[in-house]
Measured scan of single mutants.
Amino acid sequence: MDETGKELVLALYDYQEKSPREVTMKKGDILTLLNSTNKDWWKVEVNDRQGFVPAAYVKKL
Protein backbone atom coordinates (compact mmCIF):
# COMPACT_ATOMS: atom_id res chain seq x y z
CA MET A 1 0.00 0.00 0.00
CA ASP A 2 1.10 3.54 -0.62
CA GLU A 3 0.86 6.45 1.82
CA THR A 4 -2.83 7.00 0.94
CA GLY A 5 -3.73 3.38 1.74
CA LYS A 6 -4.19 2.32 -1.88
CA GLU A 7 -3.02 -1.13 -2.92
CA LEU A 8 -0.03 -1.30 -5.24
CA VAL A 9 0.99 -3.85 -7.85
CA LEU A 10 4.31 -4.54 -9.57
CA ALA A 11 4.50 -5.00 -13.34
CA LEU A 12 6.15 -8.36 -13.99
CA TYR A 13 6.31 -7.85 -17.77
CA ASP A 14 6.09 -5.09 -20.35
CA TYR A 15 2.58 -4.61 -21.74
CA GLN A 16 1.58 -2.42 -24.67
CA GLU A 17 -2.03 -1.26 -24.66
CA LYS A 18 -4.13 -2.70 -27.47
CA SER A 19 -7.27 -0.59 -26.92
CA PRO A 20 -8.14 2.78 -25.33
CA ARG A 21 -9.41 0.95 -22.20
CA GLU A 22 -5.95 -0.49 -21.48
CA VAL A 23 -2.73 1.12 -20.26
CA THR A 24 0.89 0.53 -21.20
CA MET A 25 3.32 -0.54 -18.49
CA LYS A 26 6.96 -1.54 -18.32
CA LYS A 27 8.45 -4.36 -16.26
CA GLY A 28 9.25 -2.98 -12.81
CA ASP A 29 6.59 -0.24 -12.87
CA ILE A 30 4.62 0.26 -9.65
CA LEU A 31 0.92 0.79 -10.37
CA THR A 32 -2.01 1.70 -8.15
CA LEU A 33 -4.59 -1.10 -8.10
CA LEU A 34 -8.13 0.25 -8.51
CA ASN A 35 -10.12 -2.95 -9.08
CA SER A 36 -9.21 -6.64 -9.09
CA THR A 37 -12.65 -8.28 -9.12
CA ASN A 38 -12.12 -9.65 -12.64
CA LYS A 39 -9.68 -12.56 -12.52
CA ASP A 40 -8.22 -11.82 -15.97
CA TRP A 41 -8.04 -7.99 -16.19
CA TRP A 42 -7.27 -5.59 -13.35
CA LYS A 43 -7.97 -1.87 -13.43
CA VAL A 44 -4.91 0.17 -12.48
CA GLU A 45 -3.63 3.72 -12.54
CA VAL A 46 -0.20 4.59 -13.92
CA ASN A 47 1.18 7.97 -15.00
CA ASP A 48 -2.19 9.66 -14.26
CA ARG A 49 -3.99 7.25 -16.61
CA GLN A 50 -6.51 4.60 -15.63
CA GLY A 51 -7.08 1.41 -17.57
CA PHE A 52 -6.85 -2.34 -17.63
CA VAL A 53 -3.85 -4.68 -17.68
CA PRO A 54 -3.71 -8.50 -17.73
CA ALA A 55 -3.88 -9.74 -14.14
CA ALA A 56 -1.20 -12.34 -14.89
CA TYR A 57 1.24 -9.51 -15.75
CA VAL A 58 1.16 -7.91 -12.28
CA LYS A 59 1.70 -8.97 -8.66
CA LYS A 60 0.23 -7.39 -5.54
CA LEU A 61 2.82 -5.79 -3.26
Rank of each mutant, 00 (worst) to 15 (best):
M1A: 13
M1K: 14
M1D: 13
M1N: 13
M1H: 14
M1T: 13
D2R: 11
D2T: 14
D2P: 14
E3G: 13
E3N: 14
E3P: 14
E3C: 15
E3Q: 13
E3R: 13
E3T: 14
E3K: 14
T4N: 13
T4E: 12
G5C: 15
G5N: 13
G5D: 12
G5S: 12
K6L: 11
K6E: 09
K6I: 10
K6V: 12
K6F: 13
E7A: 10
E7Y: 10
E7H: 10
E7M: 12
E7I: 15
L8C: 12
L8P: 04
L8G: 03
L8K: 11
L8Y: 15
L8T: 08
L8D: 04
L8R: 10
V9Y: 10
V9F: 06
V9N: 01
V9C: 14
V9S: 02
L10D: 01
L10V: 15
L10T: 07
L10H: 04
A11C: 12
A11M: 02
A11E: 01
A11I: 02
A11G: 03
A11V: 10
L12E: 04
Y13R: 15
Y13A: 10
Y13V: 10
Y13D: 07
Y13I: 09
D14I: 02
D14M: 03
D14T: 05
D14W: 03
D14V: 02
D14F: 04
Y15A: 00
Y15N: 00
Y15Q: 00
Y15L: 01
Y15S: 01
Q16E: 14
Q16R: 10
Q16P: 07
Q16A: 12
Q16F: 15
E17P: 14
E17M: 11
E17Q: 12
E17W: 05
E17H: 07
K18A: 10
K18Y: 05
K18Q: 14
K18H: 08
S19H: 11
S19C: 10
S19L: 08
S19K: 07
S19T: 12
S19E: 08
S19A: 08
P20E: 12
P20Y: 08
P20L: 09
P20W: 08
R21Y: 12
R21P: 05
R21A: 13
R21E: 14
R21L: 13
E22R: 04
E22L: 05
E22D: 05
E22N: 04
E22A: 05
E22K: 04
V23K: 01
V23W: 04
V23M: 10
T24F: 04
T24S: 15
T24N: 06
T24I: 03
T24M: 04
M25R: 00
M25T: 03
M25F: 09
M25W: 01
M25S: 01
M25C: 06
K26G: 05
K26C: 11
K26N: 08
K26I: 08
K26H: 10
K27Y: 05
K27M: 08
K27R: 10
G28N: 06
G28C: 11
G28D: 05
D29Q: 15
I30Y: 06
I30F: 06
L31A: 08
L31E: 00
L31M: 13
L31S: 02
T32D: 05
T32Y: 11
T32E: 09
T32N: 07
T32H: 09
T32V: 15
T32G: 08
T32Q: 11
L33G: 01
L33T: 01
L33S: 02
L33N: 00
L33I: 05
L34C: 06
L34I: 14
L34S: 02
L34D: 01
L34G: 01
L34V: 12
N35H: 07
N35P: 03
N35R: 06
N35T: 07
N35S: 11
N35Q: 10
N35L: 09
N35I: 07
S36F: 06
S36W: 08
T37V: 09
T37E: 14
N38F: 07
N38A: 08
N38P: 04
N38T: 06
N38S: 09
N38K: 06
K39T: 11
K39D: 11
D40V: 13
D40W: 15
D40G: 08
D40T: 12
D40P: 02
W41G: 00
W41H: 02
W41P: 00
W42A: 04
W42T: 03
W42C: 03
W42K: 01
W42D: 00
K43I: 14
K43M: 15
K43Q: 12
K43H: 10
K43P: 01
K43S: 08
K43F: 15
V44G: 01
V44S: 00
V44C: 04
E45R: 09
E45Y: 06
E45N: 06
E45D: 06
E45T: 07
V46L: 15
V46N: 15
V46T: 15
V46D: 13
N47C: 13
N47L: 13
N47T: 09
N47M: 12
N47R: 13
D48I: 06
D48M: 10
D48W: 07
D48P: 05
D48E: 10
D48Q: 12
R49V: 07
R49Y: 05
R49N: 06
R49G: 04
R49Q: 07
Q50C: 11
Q50R: 11
G51T: 02
G51K: 02
G51P: 00
G51C: 03
G51E: 02
G51M: 05
G51N: 01
F52V: 07
F52W: 15
F52A: 03
F52M: 08
F52I: 06
V53T: 01
V53R: 00
V53W: 00
V53E: 00
P54F: 03
P54H: 02
P54D: 02
P54A: 03
P54Q: 02
P54M: 02
A55N: 03
A55S: 13
A55L: 02
A55Q: 05
A55G: 04
A55H: 03
A55E: 04
A55K: 06
A56H: 11
A56K: 14
A56P: 07
A56E: 13
A56V: 09
Y57R: 07
Y57A: 13
V58Y: 01
V58C: 15
V58L: 15
V58W: 01
V58R: 00
V58D: 01
K59A: 12
K59I: 14
K59H: 10
K59T: 14
K59Q: 14
K59C: 15
K59N: 06
K60G: 06
K60N: 07
K60V: 12
K60C: 11
K60A: 08
K60D: 05
L61N: 03
L61D: 03
L61F: 08
L61G: 03
